[in-house]
Write a protein that binds this DNA or RNA. Structure first.
Lengths: 250, 250
DNA sequence: GCCTCCAAAATTGTGCACAATCTGCGCGGT
DNA sequence: ACCGCGCAGATTGTGCACAATTTTGGAGGC
């Protein structure tokens, strides 16, 4: 069910080719991760092993392994004997994730600003190329593409800074940001505006000292500010509040 | 073999009590992690699933799961069809890990310095208590205790800063630092001197602005400086260089 | 009418057997 | 004497069957 149109019957081939094993796993991880990021799988969704196995055409233990990896990255929550759920961050956790991003991305921007000018051509090309992609996605109102590209933009800057370890940490934090946005986004909010990214690129190229760093901090603050991080500690309270006026007392 | 004195025959009880399942896993993770940190398991060591299973008295798939978790944390390396090995970081990776620690721990120290004075009593108590423990370990020349306590000290500061997400990230980086130290430590180096920690505690309590942060950065720099992070990119290159003058051309 | 309890169904957890792969070693050919 | 080949032995990878647990649905009692 759902959009599992890929459930081709090639599930159990007579000869198990193990060559595509590891890539299949990371493919599934990425696929689920993206689905969570662009809200096709909202926080709290139950992820039944059997369903996922059918959807991806793999065995259940493969899915189990993938879920363990995603749980390690705090993208899904594993409850013993209950199963896997798309993680539903608390407001506290959401704030922590954004604070962690500010810490790491400030350091990344400071390193980028310290790089000798002009920036290497390939860096400039990739920055401008990515900016064009974001513009196109915004013009086409392709929300899913915008979300994906927005995350990739921050990752791209991290890669230019040249610390793969920090980049890896940031990749996790970006995934969790997407989760936090999915959980706490207000109606009619515009995620990660491509305009901020445009200004960031310009500041980075122009290199007014400290400007790009300041813009990045302001950008992250703005994204966090667009969230509704009040109370909302429990789903049950939510349901009661939502249906309060539909429950006729007599 | 090895120190597997815990191989009690209770390996396969007729009724499998699943109650102690999750705790057993984290226990094994911690146990292996500590063994790696204090060099009982040096980088590159092969971790055979069967051996570990016997050593901990659990089934092989339990061990497999634990190894997957450790691999995710970059503490062990998983090579397909070859098995698990204690990770052997490259000099580049070691430098990256220390840079990442400087980024995160600087932020933590800045937050601690921004806390209102005097610091809460329980914080002061824990700081002083930990300092006493480190002193005792140093006095007793208990190297394993010193390594463990040193890591705990940095983690303690992170907890006081109140961001569990950053603390979790730092915990991973500390483990990888231990690995880097094990891989690149010079002979006759003194790890993480308890003296640095003493000064850090004093600066934190006294609160001369910026002093504690500066001490932390200097402390991390000093630990990294004690490592030998030259060349050594590959074992083969090493071998060629080492035996270059023993290869007679005629 | 509502609550409690129990059994069936669904889902997750785990041991086991076997398949696939890698490593080490000896044999035969050139 | 050296190189390739191939055959055990050991180790990892995976599907499957079954056990344990939770959830669901309904019957019975208060």
């Amino acid at each position: 069910m759902t959009t599992a149109a890929t459930a081709k019957p090639a599930r159990r081939t007579p000869r198990a080719r193990t060559g595509t094993r590891a890539s299949a796993e990371s493919r599934i991880v990425r696929s689920i991760g993206e689905a969570i990021a662009d809200r096709r799988l909202p926080p709290g969704t139950k992820l039944t092993e059997e369903s996922l196995a059918e959807a991806f055409g793999v065995s259940r233990e493969r899915v189990r392994k993938v879920l363990l990896l995603l749980a390690q990255r705090r993208v899904v929550t594993l409850i013993p004997n209950r199963g896997a759920f798309v993680a539903k961050p608390t407001p506290k956790e959401a704030r922590e994730v954004f604070e962690a991003r500010r810490v790491i991305e400030r350091a990344i921007m400071e390193r980028l600003e310290r790089m000798p000018r002009p920036l290497p051509d390939d860096v400039l090309d990739k920055l401008r190329g990515h900016g064009a992609l974001e513009d196109a996605a915004e013009l086409a109102a392709d929300r899913k593409a915008m979300i994906r590209l927005s995350g990739q933009f921050h990752l791209l800057l991290a890669e230019f800074a040249g610390n793969a370890t920090l980049t890896g940490i940031l990749a996790d934090l970006i995934d969790r940001s997407s989760l936090a946005i999915a959980a706490f986004e207000r109606r009619s909010s515009h995620t990660c505006s491509a305009d901020d990214h445009r200004r960031l690129i310009a500041a980075l190229i122009g290199n007014a000292p400290g400007e790009a760093t300041a813009l990045m901090i302001e950008h992250l603050d703005e994204v966090e500010r667009q969230l509704d991080l009040e109370a909302k500690t429990d789903t049950r309270i939510d349901l009661k509040a939502i249906f309060a006026d539909e429950h006729e007392p007599a």
